[in-house]
Write a protein that binds this DNA or RNA. Sequence first.
DNA 1: ACTTGACTTGGACAACCGACCAGGACAACC
DNA 2: GGTTGTCCTGGTCGGTTGTCCAAGTCAAGT
Lengths: 210, 210
Amino acid sequence: MNRLPVAERREQLIEAALAVASRDGIDAATVRAVAAEAGVSLGVVHYCFQDKDELLRAMAHAITSANLERSLGELPAEAEDVESVIEGVIEALWAGIRDSRGPQLLSYELTTSSLRHTELNQVAIEQYRGQWAAAEQVLDLVERSAHVSWSVPRGVIARSIVAVVDGFSLAWLVDGDSEAARNGLQGFGRYLATIAVPASVEADATASIA
Amino acid sequence: MNRLPVAERREQLIEAALAVASRDGIDAATVRAVAAEAGVSLGVVHYCFQDKDELLRAMAHAITSANLERSLGELPAEAEDVESVIEGVIEALWAGIRDSRGPQLLSYELTTSSLRHTELNQVAIEQYRGQWAAAEQVLDLVERSAHVSWSVPRGVIARSIVAVVDGFSLAWLVDGDSEAARNGLQGFGRYLATIAVPASVEADATASIA
DNA sequence: ACTTGACTTGGACAACCGACCAGGACAACC
DNA sequence: GGTTGTCCTGGTCGGTTGTCCAAGTCAAGT
């Protein structure tokens, strides 16, 4: 097979691990399965990673980054009233989740595994810190697009967004009812619109400058 | 050791499996670990259960039942206005979750495992069917206690309740912030109060009779 | 051309897993 | 008291896992 510098080989193995774990679950991501998926022999994995756990941690970091980029990447911001802006954002967010069932399920497997095994200690908290921060960025976007501010602390709203998205996603993973998930999330979106207040001209101008 | 009829031995093994899995995670619930926890020798497990999967399915059924009884068991219903009723119900619900971290985490492990392994096919959907039904019963209770009805289909609200509770519980499992979880759930409770409408005297009388 | 260092190979190892079995122990019944 | 059937024991088996290693391969530098 092709010879690759260790850094590139690492990336390839992370991608292979992601593919196996997304397809067949985190338990199926054995060293052998990952090596086979990447088309390399067994020893290569331990040449690139000290541990299997180091590989899993790298994989977790990769999927977390990918999820965040996917969430923040394709957000529309072409609307006037708050309701429409939020509706569009949620629509895009949900479409991203719906089209990545395997990775989504893998994220939850990683969270629970992290909470059980000390070797993956930091994985779960990093996942959620990232998601909470991303939710706050979404709030920023809505603020700027619809010229509003929030009557509830941003951190509190961000935590609620992540919680609601997690909850409806889990239910959708279980019973496959996309329509129920979409409706539930849009219902939450309409609630979000009720806690948005029109931004004062001053504050809005300041926001535009900054 | 004591000799027990197979039915009682099964119950004991299920309890042992529940203890091991709640303490150390679902992966730690090996046949050997369960046998050791129950204080019986290895063969007993396969004498009482055809498969390891049959044991896990029985364990899943047990924890699901336990969760539902815990949720529905200790619900207060001594209040007048909707807000207070909902607040009390959520307080009791959250207290139950907060005091059972291990089993709670195990429930999510069971859900994800069920979605990956065909042998546990029905576990997740049964979990959620039970929770959705329980949420509807909670809605009934609030209806009767506060003399209201709901302006949104009960099934939709029930799914939202389960989703929100799941979401905040997961976040709490990750970062341990009980206060944030409690506040988030109470915030959702105040929203629920806004979609409750006073029941007509007629409807209320009918409900009392039935 | 030859050495050096980076990368790869495929097998070996101990540990653990679920499953299985031959036989021992015990209580109930004839 | 002997028999029958239920329950328990402890070991064994094949398979899978993570980890390690001696040897091989290849490109780059001298």
